[in-house]
Design a protein around this nucleic acid. Sequence first.
DNA 1: TGTACATCAGTGAACGCGCGTTCACTGATGTAC
DNA 2: TGTACATCAGTGAACGCGCGTTCACTGATGTAC
Lengths: 224, 224
Amino acid sequence: MSARGPKRAKRASPSAVAQTGRKLGPRALATRQRLLDATARLLKERSVLDISVVEIARQAETSPATFYHYFKDVDSAVLLLAEQAAAEMPALLDIIDGSWRGRQGLERSRALVSAFIEHWDEHHAVLLMRNLAADNGDPRFQKVRRMALKPVLDRLAEVIAQARDAGRISPSIHPHVAAAALAAMLERLSAHYRELQTFRVTREELIESCARMVYQTIAGRSAS
Amino acid sequence: MSARGPKRAKRASPSAVAQTGRKLGPRALATRQRLLDATARLLKERSVLDISVVEIARQAETSPATFYHYFKDVDSAVLLLAEQAAAEMPALLDIIDGSWRGRQGLERSRALVSAFIEHWDEHHAVLLMRNLAADNGDPRFQKVRRMALKPVLDRLAEVIAQARDAGRISPSIHPHVAAAALAAMLERLSAHYRELQTFRVTREELIESCARMVYQTIAGRSAS
DNA sequence: TGTACATCAGTGAACGCGCGTTCACTGATGTAC
DNA sequence: TGTACATCAGTGAACGCGCGTTCACTGATGTAC
């Protein structure tokens, strides 16, 4: 048994502790999750800009005082939501792992792009606020973003490095930078691709084009 | 040669009208610009989340009442800042126009990437809020973003279409989508590339790698 | 099985504070003659 | 050149409101025996 053994056990409840430091029972966990759900809902319906403790409590049909039992402030609640979203990222790794040559690689690329878009569709508002806070220099949000993306970026960079070493892409391309750039593209596009659709671009076309671009960068150009 | 001419001409006054509808004299214009500058400064120093009319007025060393002479609310002020930033975009067109073949194309690509990054460095906070509001569905901000990017996207799409017709890139790549994807990549990366730098990636490496990726998508792969 | 007590979970009500917004007003600048 | 008047620009002070935050309390659940 390694030192990291029981690390996965606490999926739904990272830091299941009240502000007082006490451990939370099942009833308390449910209340906390209700507050988190309310936060997520508000983040979607309105914007980050008009979200408040009072409003969250109202949505969760409880009182502000209860909110303070579980969270220091609104940011902390959103941070937790971002962590919950981040916990889904490992699913992407299954897509990346494997051969990137030829048709198989292209298929993999398509799957990666749509998984990214789906992930954003599901957590749109939370991820938007996460990135905003991170871009504004908040270290907590920077960390949760870094941790969410890191495994994905690392694997992508590996694949890119292989393609580079095999001479299929330019040696001037820095694998980690390229991986970060691809993630940046996918994040940003996922955040606002709906607007493209008014431009007579279907979701499928979007995915196909992106997949080709990703593939080109990851594996070099292939005839097709 | 950089034949850029009098690009500063109309800089300070798109829609120079008070809330009452009256035209603004020079003194009023100066006050309004002071308010805008204060808004931009606050947006940089703090975050979008804690910006208020009162605070802006304080920064500009005037009273809240004055703010309401010129703007309906904080959003309107930021919108104007976003428009001022958008007015700089045409400079990018000079970079895109011209041949994208071979070494020249790669050089063009580098110039494009760094121009993008510089533009974001200069307007970081405003563009971040613009995108946030746009992603949250605010049509005014969606429009200003669309208008800022449109000329650039159109030209890029043209170049990409040429490469596609010449068989240098996959016919499955939709030129407009590819252009949007490149812009998305550059925007997002420009927004947070500072974080990459802690990763031992220099700004030059970043630009070089991105430029290669852009070039690959725009002009197809070339030996290097 | 029932009773007593400890701990957990939730909240009503209150407080102060800072913000958004407006109004009636003052001061500054321009213009006519 | 001076005076009278119109318009432009800016603001002090006030109002109400909703939020953040806390505290002392009640009610719910578990546990010992």
